[in-house]
Design a protein around this nucleic acid. Structure first.
Length: 898
RNA sequence: GGGCAACUAGCUCAGCUGGUCAGAGCGCCUCGCUUACAACGAGGAGGUCGCUGGUUCGAGCCCAGCGUUGCCCACCA
């Protein structure tokens, strides 16, 4: 029993870590375990009345290997940041985990693994055996993937596991398919599709990439079928694929082409097969290319297929799915396609039909998975009719019901959606969702079962029992498009679905806006009658230097290794800090080092504040460490940093709310490092030695740390939690949250703007004194005397200036080296080097005069005084007055030098 | 062919609704191992914000044109 209770508390490793450096590895792991075990990542089981929800689906990583930096940015950077922020706001937060079966990609990976063992998939294994291998791979990699998500600190609700191939999702996909089939969105048709000879499957337009290649362009003469008509030119076409000549069914010319228009309708003979084919007129033909005459091969070229459709031309298939020439290829039959090309060229040359050849650089379609050159083929495939599905999805964005950030991606979205084409969804691979359609061997009827009904055993038309299920599977994106509702239980009307659909944010890379985001919006509206999420947050790509990171380039950085060395916080911070959402970034060691140093800085500020808290236990007898200290009795530095804390709370909140995560991260570094550490911590040191100030200082340090930890928790969950646990231990009210994870995001309290302004002057004076000291070569440990010209502006801060500069501060008079800060004379009592000093003062004088002139010019612009807002005019006048006064003082100082 | 973005310090990049917006990190120079931190501290150098016009009292910030680079879409045989 005692054991159990102990296990429910925070991990000892976090509570006891005290080292000079933030040493994360074991602490992070223990903390994550504790968070997960404690159920912090699971939204409350029952909805509270009027609860606000924050729902975000993990962009399901492919189960094909380890996470890379792009995942780290997406999951550990932006998403977990948002999830943790909203959880702290008190929203019922669901960050849904899951993995994608990754269809063809996963199949390729496993095939390669099998090949290493000498097993050929197609010949060495049955389909069932191969799928067993696939599942074995999944069993290994899903836990591995998820372990890495835990390392990143992602606050996913693991009590709701998901996999696109789990039984519930298979059922959902079946429902979805049958639903779309019944309402006419899915149909089966013979069309030209992209075919991959390596993967032996079709693929969609989105998966076709283009590469520039240089190939020979052959000019081939097509003889006139009945002898050349009077005045007719030779018909010469240009092609890079002479082996497809055997499948030609026409020659097309542009009807606007004067060279050819009058010959439309005449016939020519296709070389090699001597087929009579017509010359047709079609506007798709580019007048400027080659001779202006285009051979038409509907069976092997997408453009030609469309031209063929327009002119009612037949389709001849001369190349089979293995890349061999079919019997229809005549003299080329049986040859492999490259050999066939050679042979075609030879024969054409022999027959005097090859006029010439020249090199051509053109874009060649390749499969984005294996870079095999596309072999367009006409095949019977399942297609999804997209325009009707796209229409309401376009409207959802246009009307603002779905918002895309950064907004300029909305244009990209519209551009694609408004020109959307039907989507071939069947794939000739084994790993994936089965197509719930059976074909009758007797009458060829398509038999589609009830969504939850048994598989059909009898043809609905002829009653035959000789049925065969469609052997193809569905494209991976077919199932991932359903992610926002299938993870919540659709097609059943579950409690989760009612409570968490529509979701809130969908965060992912802009590279899958079409593949995934657009399709989720379409399918969500189709199946649920409502959008799947209200905001799409798109991030950019992580590059190594200026190069894209990719496995083939070998410049992929492993997040796992980074985390083990420096902690997840540093990695998360490095990826987010200072980056504009949606913009590509170049990742570098420098960025990571800064992040690691910052995590360490925070850690050490924490150690210092903790020590102060421990030294003054009485200060916290009746005052919680996370409570704002009452201002009564606090000195200026305490009041100042408290005011800055509130400014930071307000600004951090604003930046996160507006998706400016990069700026939020930068803001936190500027506050914690430059203000809290460099200024306030230094000012607190004498404060702690001063019995009258000490309690207030300790309370202020505790509060400033507490607020900093809360504000940083979304981006640096581990350091912040470790410090919070150590700070809070026994020093807060008993009903307070047990963890930063479930603590409250701060609401800003009042600032003291006048004090902040006075402190800004003090800081400038301090910097000037330090600079003068250093210029004069004074040893840092030597105490100097400083005389300040303006008592009223700074008398309140004299002791703080003194402690920050190791000086005795007095007002008025004095001698030694000098400068002017704003309108305050600053004089450090050391021997002055007249020549150097004169040069420095003259430069300052010149700069100030130039600055004053700029203000004068602004003020003198016609219309400025009348048309600019009064505050602006007043501000400019005050600025001029200050600069003029500074000029006067600098001149006086220079005069004194003589 | 169409579309989208970027061009700010040596490098990589921030600059929200036009009025200290000329910034950060890294790098560089000069000091300093002071009891939170050398994974540190202090000080400093460094930019006519791609070019040309325009709007405005006022423009890295808005408009137009141009230049350079990158990306996306598209039926270059």
């Amino acid at each position: 029993m005692a054991m159990t209770e102990e296990r429910q508390g925070p991990p000892a490793s976090a509570l006891e870590h005290r080292g000079k450096n933030w040493a994360p590895a074991d602490v992070e792991r223990d903390l994550y375990d504790w968070w997960e075990r404690s159920g912090f990542f699971t939204p409350p089981a029952e909805p509270a009345p009027g609860e606000r929800t924050f729902v975000m689906m993990l962009p399901l990583p492919n189960v094909t290997g380890d996470l890379h930096l792009g995942h780290a940015l997406s999951f550990g950077g932006y998403e977990d940041l948002m999830a943790r922020y909203h959880r702290m706001l008190g929203d019922a937060t669901l960050y849904m985990p899951g993995n994608d079966h990754a269809g063809i990609i996963a199949q390729i990976v496993v095939e390669k693994e099998l090949a290493k063992e000498g097993i050929e998939k197609r010949t060495g294994l049955t389909r069932e055996q191969f799928l067993a291998e696939m599942w074995q791979w999944m069993d290994h990699y899903i836990p591995r993937n998820n372990a890495q998500l835990r390392m990143l600190g992602c606050s996913l609700d693991w009590s709701r596991p998901n996999f696109t191939m789990d039984p519930a999702k298979q059922r959902a996909v079946r429902h979805h398919f049958i639903r779309l089939y019944r309402n006419g969105h899915l149909y089966r048709a013979d069309r030209i599709v992209h075919w991959c000879l390596t993967c032996q499957t079709t693929y969609s337009d989105l998966e076709a990439k283009h590469e520039d290649r240089t190939d020979p362009l052959y000019y081939v003469r097509y003889p006139w079928a009945d002898g050349a008509p009077d005045g007719a030119p030779d018909v010469i076409v240009a092609t890079t694929r002479p082996e497809t000549i055997v499948a030609d069914v026409a020659v097309a010319v542009n009807p606007a082409d004067e060279r050819w228009s009058r010959w439309i309708g005449q016939e020519v003979l296709v070389p090699l097969v001597e087929r009579r084919v017509p010359i047709v007129g079609d506007e798709a033909v580019d007048i400027g290319f080659g001779t202006g005459a285009l051979k038409i091969t509907p069976g092997h070229d997408a453009t030609d297929f469309e031209i063929g459709q327009r002119h009612g031309l037949p389709v001849i298939t001369a190349i089979d799915p293995r890349g061999r020439m079919t019997p229809a290829a005549g003299i080329l039959a049986g040859a492999e396609r490259n050999a066939a090309r050679k042979k075609a060229v030879e024969v054409l040359r022999e027959r005097g039909l090859l006029i010439r050849e020249e090199p051509l650089t053109h874009a060649v379609g390749v499969h984005d998975r294996c870079f095999t050159v596309d072999e367009p083929l006409v095949m019977k495939q399942w297609w999804m009719r997209m325009p009707p599905l796209a229409a309401p999805a376009i409207d959802a964005v246009r009307s603002g019901r779905v918002r895309i950030v950064p907004a300029h991606f909305e244009k990209t979205y519209f551009n694609w959606m408004e020109n959307i084409r039907d989507w071939p969804v069947s794939r000739q691979i084994w790993w994936g969702h089965a197509i719930p359609v059976w074909y009758c061997r007797e009458c060829d009827e398509q038999v589609v079962p009830e969504p939850d009904g048994p598989d059909p055993v009898k043809c609905t038309r002829c009653g035959s029992t000789d049925l065969r299920q469609d052997p193809d599977v569905l494209d991976t994106w077919f199932s991932s498009a359903l992610w926002p509702h299938t993870t919540l239980g659709w097609p059943d009307r579950t409690k989760d679905l009612a409570r968490f659909y529509p979701g809130t944010v969908l965060e992912t890379g802009y590279d899958i806006l079409f593949f995934w985001v657009a399709r989720m919006i379409m399918m969500g509206i189709e199946n649920m009658g409502d959008i799947p999420f209200s905001t799409v947050v798109l991030h950019g790509m992580v590059k190594s230097g200026t190069e894209k990171m990719s496995k083939s380039r070998g410049n992929v950085v492993s997040p796992v290794e980074y985390i083990e060395e420096n902690g997840a916080d540093a990695l998360r911070y490095a990826l987010v800090n200072g980056v504009s959402l949606g913009a590509d970034q170049s990742f570098s060691d420098a960025r990571l080092q800064n992040a690691r140093n910052f995590a360490n800085k925070l850690w050490n500020i924490g150690r210092y504040a903790l020590r102060a808290v421990e030294q003054r236990p009485d200060a916290f007898a009746s005052h919680a460490v996370d409570a704002r200290p009452p201002l009564d009795g606090l000195e200026a530095p305490e009041r100042w940093i408290l005011s800055r804390v509130e400014a930071t709370v307000a600004e951090a909140t604003r930046l996160i709310e507006s998706y400016n995560f990069g700026e939020y991260a930068s803001l936190m570094q500027a506050f914690v490092w430059n203000e809290l550490a460099d200024v306030y911590v230094e000012l607190s040191k004498p404060g702690l030695r001063d019995e009258r100030r000490a309690d207030g200082v300790a309370r202020t340090l505790a509060y400033a740390l507490d607020r900093s930890l809360r504000l940083l928790h979304p981006i640096m969950p581990f350091v912040s939690e470790t410090l919070a646990l150590q700070l809070w231990q026994g020093r807060r009210k008993s009903d307070a949250a047990p963890s930063l994870v479930v603590s409250r995001w701060p609401a800003p309290a009042a600032r003291d703007l006048a004090l902040e302004e006075r402190f800004a002057l003090l800081a400038e004076v301090v910097r000037a004194i330090r600079s003068l000291r250093q210029d004069a070569g004074v040893d840092p440990s030597d105490r100097v005397t400083v005389a300040l010209g303006s008592a009223e502006a700074l008398r309140w801060g004299a002791e703080h200036i003194a402690s920050l500069t190791n000086a005795d501060v007095s007002f008025g008079g004095g001698d030694g080296t000098a400068t002017v800060v704003r309108t305050v004379e600053v004089r450090v009592q050391v021997r002055r080097d007249a020549a150097a000093e004169r040069a420095r003062l003259e430069k300052e004088l010149a700069d100030t005069r130039a600055a004053a002139d700029r203000v004068r010019a602004t003020l003198a612009k016609p219309g400025f005084a009348e048309r600019a807002p009064k505050e602006v005019v007043a501000k400019e006048r005050a600025r001029l007055a200050e600069r003029e006064e500074r000029i006067r003082m600098l001149e006086e100082e220079l005069a004194r030098l003589r």
